[in-house]
């Protein structure tokens, strides 16, 4: 499992999700803290490409041996791509939560929402 890290180039949501903003699109995933709390992920149930996600609302779930957890959208928009590789290797979410373990790519509908997210330092201050 990867060491704790919270990259500076990402934006963070209090429900332990990250967003990598690229113009009017973003990639979403869960943070190191979230995957550590969950334990080994054994199942990722991706949303449909084309579905709408709403900031602060659950858009998918990830499941570990011991528990299932909702994944909260850090921003609103339309899903343009899902990480199909996680179907066979959901443990990638643990091994590389900010890289190969990304969950979905989203075309953002309201760029002003980005201002409400935290940077790495602010997010880490919310952790124990």
């Amino acid at each position: 499992m990867a060491d704790p890290s919270y990259p500076d180039d990402l934006k963070y949501h209090s429900e332990h999700d990250w967003a990598r903003i690229d113009g009017d699109s973003a990639t979403f995933g869960i943070t190191w803290y979230a995957q550590d709390a969950l334990g080994e992920v054994v199942f990722f149930d991706p949303p449909q490409v084309g579905s709408q996600v709403s900031k602060d609302q659950a858009y998918t779930e990830v499941e570990s041996v011991k528990a299932v957890s909702d994944v909260i959208a850090p921003l609103s928009g339309e899903v343009t791509e899902v990480n199909d590789a996680l179907g066979d290797k959901p443990e990638t979410i643990n091994e590389d939560p900010y890289g190969e373990g990304w969950l979905v790519k989203v075309k953002l509908s309201d760029l002003t929402e980005v201002d409400s997210l935290m940077d790495s330092t602010e997010y880490q201050a919310t952790l124990d």
């Binding site: 499992m1 334990g39 080994e40 570990s64 041996v65 011991k66």
Partner: peptide, 8 residues
Amino acid sequence: PVQYGGIR
């Protein structure tokens, strides 16, 4: 202890 390295 619920787990050390990992449940699996």
